[in-house]
Amino acid sequence: MVKPFIRDHSAQVLLLCGMLTMIAVSLQSTVVVRCAQMVFFLIFAGLMGRRVRLLPPAVMLLSVVVANLFSPNGRVLFSVWRLDITYGALRLGLMKGTLFIGLIYISRVSVGPGLKFPGRFGALLLKTFAYFEQLTEKWPLTHGDVLGRIDELLLTISRSDAGSARGEPRGPEAADGRRGGVIAAGGTEIQPYRRNLLAAAVLLTAGWGPYIASWTLIAADGRIG
């Protein structure tokens, strides 16, 4: 009873857990923990076979931090040229930047293959992805009259009635070329639904773990005090 449901809806479960994890990460107020979480989610996305690039997040993080440094807030740690680097501004920049990047990679992990949308809009989405497939397949990699070729391509596709021709689209992540990741050791492929559930558990633990741990510590402190 439960198992088939999980099997069918594991992608949705993963998405739900991913969103819960996002809440935990945005609540996390310890800057070191949040940095660690960002790094963890980045690595985890890589292990899950999601596209991970290092330079864009690095540039992003750096620019967010630098941008926030211009608004000084708190103790002056040191000065670079005429800019005072303050603890508060540095912390704020790191908090915002790591959240930004952390959420991107949590999202990359939790939006996986097999995700379905119900109802009429779901059907429309399916049809859209079917067209998308055709576009990626028939994309003319030619020089010259680009607009003319696009026009022809669109004519061909709309005549071919793609929407009903294909049932199952490749779905999200299709364009990546790298499909699904293998995180099992020894070369045994884990079943997709198990992998989704495992990912969900990992996300929840990494997101809420530190939060609950610190909360428990505070409670323990309170008892001692």
Binding site: L15, G18, M19, M22, R50, R51, L99, F100, L103, I104, I106, S107, R108, V109, S110, V111, L115, P172, E173, A175
Partner: peptide, 11 residues
């Protein structure tokens, strides 16, 4: 959002 996997992030 689905293609880039950024469905529920700031992006």
């Amino acid at each position: 959002g689905l293609i880039n996997g950024t469905l529920f992030s700031y992006v």
